[in-house]
Design a binder for these strands. Structure first.
Length: 589
DNA sequence: GCCGTTTTCGGCCCGACTGTTTTCAGTCG
């Protein structure tokens, strides 16, 4: 079973508990949901964690759920869950995937209309609603019947809960909407929050906060956004719309004197906020988007905060960079005033993964812009150096001597260009395939023309974990192989990464002075943030590259830097923050 | 069911909005 499937199973357990008796099982429900979140977000497969006896390293997995998971992996089923699910028709669960359907509503409808076929339950319910049979039920009405029909319709058309957006896509959409919001005469300040502000690799909803002394005015304007499918909700301080592209946008509005509290609340993450509020509660303080209350004081007066810094300060904490707000230790460090100083975009001194259009006759794709054009862009970014790392010339189409000739020719081209372009130093690299056997796709002689190589996997993605790990370690073992490119091979929303034993890889890189790439391409963001954090903890060095195949992609560096920040990386963890002399020294040793 | 710099027992974030009601249940973030 995949992590996603296991997470769904645990969420179904939580739903089953709330159908059975929400009061009685209140905290079990929360516990199962929390464990489901942790498992869904885990980069390591549950079966691999179990092999390492590390299931309880996941936050929210304690002795009981651990035992259940072990049973599941061993026998394929969990006896306790059979009891949990008894009396609950399995046709309840498909309905839970539809927005606005919770366990109570789904169960009630399934039971009332005896909808016992999980494969057809959604269609069956739609037909029942269309016949007007839901309106007469106690607690339902005509409006809720229409809402059910629409919710099913949107779900079937995949208008909602569809794939998560990549960062640039989400940013572009969010910018459109914030530009529109700023046109409201009542909006004094507009900010992007939620997962977009935390720079999570994919974004589900767009969250926006506005400061205004007339919240209703801003919300009125928001709900008139021209490119919307419909208004989902509209209240006094919050509102949600569905864009015509099927993406949900949530808006929250507070007066400027409480804007800091709102920024904090709406940036999340949920786990960060819950932990923060539990911590504050122990100090007798109650936190919300409105500010901070002390319920024990007789007047219970609410203290408001204009800025986030003041809000955190009020509970004796340092301001926490949004990228860290995932409840992975940042709260404890902020209390102890010991948060790391994270790397910033301006620390980057060069980009090492650049594909120019130089005709190197590669096995994979060539870049679209010339060496000169890419150097000009690098100068604009004030880089000291740029590493050209086209794919290796294809080995099936070239003999060794032909390959060497091609590299020699590129070398001469570099020299010629370098005479004119002195602002940015050229670093001579290649991106070389690690073949399934672990061998590199160029011969040792070719290395004489190179300062170093990035090695990457571009084929046979489905080798088992041991073979793949050994393949990569062997590929990295060559003296000139200094950087492991897009290390998990994942393509967001398209392809999972290959299975690797990260402990072994990190250990090898640390011992042998190899660096791992954080690839800034928005559909890769690879190494992923959670693995960056582990690499940093183990002292493994990283480089942040864009893997640009065109000049315009070179600006993607900011996404890679965000991944590094989400992985708690400091400037000293990232090698391409080094000045040229120090970097080239590392590369050549 | 999980968890611990007040705890291995006794806590567990805090709120908005909708539709159905006449004070609340359900869903969501």
């Amino acid at each position: 079973m995949t992590n996603k499937e296991i997470a769904e199973l645990l969420r179904n357990v939580a739903s089953a508990y709330s159908i059975k008796n929400e009061q009685k099982f209140y905290f079990q429900i929360i516990a199962y949901q929390k464990a489901a979140d942790a498992i869904e977000n885990s980069i390591t497969e549950i079966k691999d964690l179990n092999k390492e006896n590390a299931l309880q390293s996941l936050p929210g997995v304690g002795p009981s759920i651990k035992a259940h998971l072990e049973e599941l992996l061993k026998t394929g089923t969990i006896a306790h869950f059979k009891w949990v699910f008894e009396d609950i028709p399995s046709s309840v669960f498909p309905l839970l995937k539809i927005p606005s359907f919770g366990p109570k509503k789904a169960y009630r409808l399934v039971k009332t209309f005896k909808l016992n076929n999980p494969k057809t339950v959604i269609k069956d319910l739609e037909n029942i609603a269309k016949k007007g049979k839901i309106t007469p039920l106690a607690g339902f009405g005509e409006k809720s019947e229409q809402d059910i029909i629409r919710a099913i319709n949107e779900y079937e058309l995949e208008k909602t809960k569809s794939v998560r957006m990549t960062l640039p896509f989400a940013l572009e959409l969010a910018d459109k909407i914030t530009d529109y919001l700023k046109k409201s005469e009542f909006a004094m300040q507009v900010e992007l929050l939620g997962s977009l502000r935390r720079m999570v690799s994919t974004v589900g909803d767009i969250d926006i906060a506005a400061a205004s002394s007339n919240p209703k005015g801003v919300i009125e304007h928001f709900t008139k956004y021209p490119y919307k499918e419909r208004v989902i909700e509209k209240g006094d301080t919050t509102s949600s719309i569905l864009t015509s592209g099927g993406h949900q946008v949530d808006l929250m509005v507070q007066p400027p004197e409480a804007f800091g509290s709102l920024l904090q609340h709406f940036t999340g993450s949920k786990a960060h906020n819950i932990h923060l509020r539990e911590y504050a509660l122990k100090k007798g303080l109650s936190l919300s988007e409105y500010g901070i209350k002390n319920p024990k004081l007789p007047n219970k007066k609410l203290q408001q905060y204009k800025t986030e810094e003041l809000f955190y300060k009020a509970i004796d904490m340092d301001w926490v960079p949004p990228e860290l707000r995932e409840d992975s230790g940042e709260i404890e460090l902020a209390i102890g005033h010991d948060l790391p100083k994270l790397i910033e975009l301006s620390d980057i001194k060069g980009d090492l993964h650049i594909h120019s259009n130089y005709p190197i006759e590669p096995s994979h794709d060539l870049g679209r812009n010339s060496i000169t054009e890419m150097l000009d862009k690098a100068k604009e970014f004030k880089y000291e150096y740029l590493g050209f790392s086209e794919h290796n010339p294809s080995i099936s189409k070239h003999s060794e001597s032909e390959l060497l000739k091609i590299l020699l020719k590129r070398d001469k081209m570099f020299e010629k260009i370098a005479k004119d372009k002195k602002d940015v130093r050229i670093i001579k690299l290649l991106e070389v395939d690690i073949l399934p056997t672990g061998k590199l796709a160029i011969s040792d002689k070719a290395f004489d023309f190179l300062d170093g190589v990035i090695v990457s996997v571009h084929s046979s993605f489905t080798l088992d974990i041991n073979k793949m790990t050994n393949r990569i370690i062997q590929g990295l073992s060559n003296k000139k192989a200094k950087i492991l490119g897009h290390p998990t091979g994942r393509l967001i929303n398209e392809r999972q990464g290959y299975n690797l034993d990260w402990n072994k890889i990190f250990e090898f890189c640390f011992k042998n002075n190899k660096a791992i790439e954080i690839n800034s391409c928005p559909s890769r963001l690879d190494l992923p943030d959670t693995l960056v954090k582990k690499a940093v903890e183990k002292g493994v060095k990283l480089v942040i590259n864009t893997d640009s195949h065109a000049v315009y992609q070179m600006k993607n560096m900011k996404y890679g830097v965000s991944v590094a920040r989400r992985g708690w990386a400091k400037k000293s963890d990232i090698l391409n923050t080094l000045p040229y002399n120090k970097f080239i020294k590392w590369l050549r040793t």
